[in-house]
Nucleic acid binder design. Structure first.
Lengths: 104, 104
DNA sequence: CCGATAATATGTATTTCAATATAATGTTTC
DNA sequence: GAAACATTATATTGAAATACATATTATCGG
C-alpha cells in the first residue's frame, strides 16, 4: 500500500507554495490597492498615480512585481502603458477579500 | 459637496491595510500549511510537527505569528497545547484558495 | 528629422523585516 | 526533580520596502 500521507503532503506543499506566492504579492497595501483599482477597469500608470497618491517610481516598482508574477499584463498606447488583471484567480480572491474586509 | 474620492481612498487604505496584514500571514508556505491542517481539526504542536515535518521551534515561531495576528487560539490540555482557527475569515479565504489552487 | 518634454521603467543605496537555526527557558505531569 | 512538550531568546542571513537619481520610450513642435 502506498503511503498516501506522504504523497498528499508533497502535493499540499506544492499547492501551498503556489498559493503563498500569490498571497505574498497581494500582501502589500500598495499592491493590493493597485489590484483593486485594476479589478474595476484597465488603467495607465499616471491614472493610478493620481488615484492612489503613490509616487511614480514606487508605483512602477510594485507594478513590476505584479508583472513578474503574471498577475497583470500591459498594453502600450502612445506614451501610456495600460495595466490590466491577467490572472482570473486574482479577481476571485479580491472578491472574497472585498466581502470579508469591505462589505457592510 | 464633500470629496467622496478622498474619503473612500482613506477607507480603501484602511481596508487594504487590514486585508494585506492577513494576506502576509498566509503568505508563507509553512503558515499556510498549518492553517490548512487546522481548518480540518484542532491539533496540538506535536501533531503538527509530525504531519508537516517542520522542526518544532520553527513551528512554534510560525504559530506565534498566527497567534499574535489573532488567526488562531490555543487551549492547553495537560502537556499539550491545542491550536484552532480563531478567525472565520481565514476559513473563507482557505476555502477560496482551495478552489483556486487545489481543486481538479 | 531633431531636440524638448511627458510617461514609464530601471538602477542604486539604505534601512527594515522575515526566515532559519540553535540554545536556553518555562510549564506540566509523573 | 526528571521527562516531555512548548515557547522565547539570540544570532545570522537574505529578501522586501523606501527614497532618489537616472535611463528609456514615445509624442510633438519646429
Amino acid at each position: 500500500m502506498p503511503d498516501t500521507t506522504e504523497i498528499s503532503l508533497d502535493k499540499m506543499r506544492a499547492s501551498a507554495g503556489n498559493a503563498s506566492a500569490m498571497l505574498r504579492s497581494l500582501g502589500n497595501p500598495d499592491r493590493l490597492l493597485l489590484l483593486c483599482q485594476l479589478s474595476q477597469e484597465e488603467l495607465c500608470v499616471s491614472d493610478l498615480e493620481e488615484r492612489l497618491d503613490i509616487r511614480q517610481p514606487s508605483l512602477s516598482q510594485q507594478l513590476g512585481v505584479l508583472r513578474r508574477e503574471g498577475l497583470v499584463s500591459t498594453r502600450r498606447e502612445g506614451k501610456h502603458v495600460y495595466y490590466q488583471i491577467a490572472d482570473q484567480r486574482v479577481l476571485r480572491l479580491l472578491q472574497t477579500l472585498y466581502e470579508l474586509y469591505c462589505a457592510e
